[in-house]
């Protein structure tokens, strides 16, 4: 085990993976937690890197909103434009995307451009 390969969840590794995917010719986007209120699962600065085939590494929540963020990230790759997403408490009955923990977060999604 090397020192760096074990750091799967800090943002250094996520960005390195994003750069690697980009160098391999993939479309790549980044999602970053920019603000949190209440009991948000991941702190400000947490990142997710998304590849054009919907593979991803890192996290912006406890897994609650990653699915939706990945979809929006694919849109950002298409449009080439960044976007700010906001998630609040989910209503489990409504199948709405959100955070079960009761927190609220803002996520910045951006394509990695040439």
């Amino acid at each position: 085990m090397t020192d760096t390969s074990s750091r799967e969840f800090d943002h250094e590794k996520v960005l390195e993976q994003a750069a690697r995917w980009k160098a391999e010719g993939h479309g790549v986007a980044l999602a970053t937690v920019i603000e949190t209120w209440g009991s948000a699962p991941r702190p400000v600065g947490s990142q997710l890197a998304i590849r054009d085939d919907a593979a991803f590494i890192g996290s912006v929540s406890g897994g609650c909103i990653e699915g939706d963020v990945v979809t929006r990230a694919l849109d950002a790759m298409e449009s080439g434009k960044p976007e700010i997403l906001e998630y609040g408490v989910s209503d489990a009955k409504a199948w709405e995307v959100g955070l079960a923990c009761g927190g609220r977060i803002r996520v910045f999604v951006e394509p990695v451009t040439a």
């Binding site: 750069a19 980009k22 960044p82 700010i84 951006e110 990695v112 451009t113 040439a114």
Partner: peptide
């Protein structure tokens, strides 16, 4: 994020230089 900016950020990280990535939320600069 532009690829060259990402590269520079990774270089700063490798050199253990404290750095802030500033993003203007209105236009993504």
């Amino acid at each position: 994020m532009r690829s060259d900016l990402l590269q520079r950020l990774l270089e700063d990280r490798a050199a253990k230089r404290p750095v802030v990535l500033a993003t203007r939320l209105t236009d993504g600069v």
